[in-house]
């Protein structure tokens, strides 16, 4: 009887510790983060239904580390010609009228100690959806990926034709390593 209590205690403690450890490992991960934006901009309509290329609005992604939120003038390239009006479009027109920038809520946040460059990835042929998920199906954008270092490295290892798992890694060690296409050095992202 006493042994059973002790066993149950150990089990409970183990579970508890495991739970805390799991919780701890999730600190700072905001997968699924989908805040309400000041204007309910539907990517589904723009990128999905009308098939506007991502880089039309997020043109900076080709040249800059930031993909950039388009200035209102880019929205008005089309919306000054379109007749359709909704309550949300009214908000945009009002902001343009008042020359007031829109305070969008940033969804994909990396810590300061990580350097991420959009242009490097776009020019290397990485599809936007690879990190941002099926954005063309989203009405309200949610963070699709965990944005953890492990998640980054999974892809970098794959692109570098390096093994991701332990078994693969030991197998790969026997064969020759090809030239890595994606950086695996710490200083590729941390400086």
């Amino acid at each position: 009887m006493r042994l059973r209590f002790i066993a149950a205690g150990i089990l409970a403690l183990g579970l508890g510790t495991g739970l805390v450890a799991w919780q701890l490992s999730r600190v700072g991960i905001h997968q699924g983060y989908a805040p309400v934006q000041p204007i309910a901009f539907p990517h589904k309509v723009h990128a999905g239904d009308y098939k506007i290329p991502c880089l039309y609005c997020h043109y900076a992604a080709r040249t800059s580390r930031h993909a950039g939120i388009p200035p209102e003038s880019v929205c008005m390239n089309c919306h000054s010609l379109l007749e359709k009006q909704t309550a949300e479009i009214e908000k945009l027109l009002e902001a343009v009228e008042q020359r007031r920038p829109i305070r969008w809520i940033k969804i994909h946040n990396l810590p300061d100690f990580v350097y991420f460059n959009h242009s490097q990835h776009v020019l290397s042929g990485v599809a936007c959806q690879r990190c941002h998920g099926p954005i063309e199906q989203m009405d309200r954008v949610a963070q699709a990926s965990p944005l953890t270092m492990g998640w980054c490295l999974d892809c970098h290892r794959e692109e570098a034709h390096l093994a991701a798992t332990g078994v693969e890694r030991s197998l790969a060690a026997l064969t020759q390593r090809p030239k890595p296409a994606a950086g695996l050095d710490c200083a590729s992202c941390h400086y």
Binding site: H30, P71, V96, I105, N109
Partner: peptide
Amino acid sequence: APVQYAVPTVAG
């Protein structure tokens, strides 16, 4: 995490 904002310019 604190809410962060991304504020573009009005005219690009």
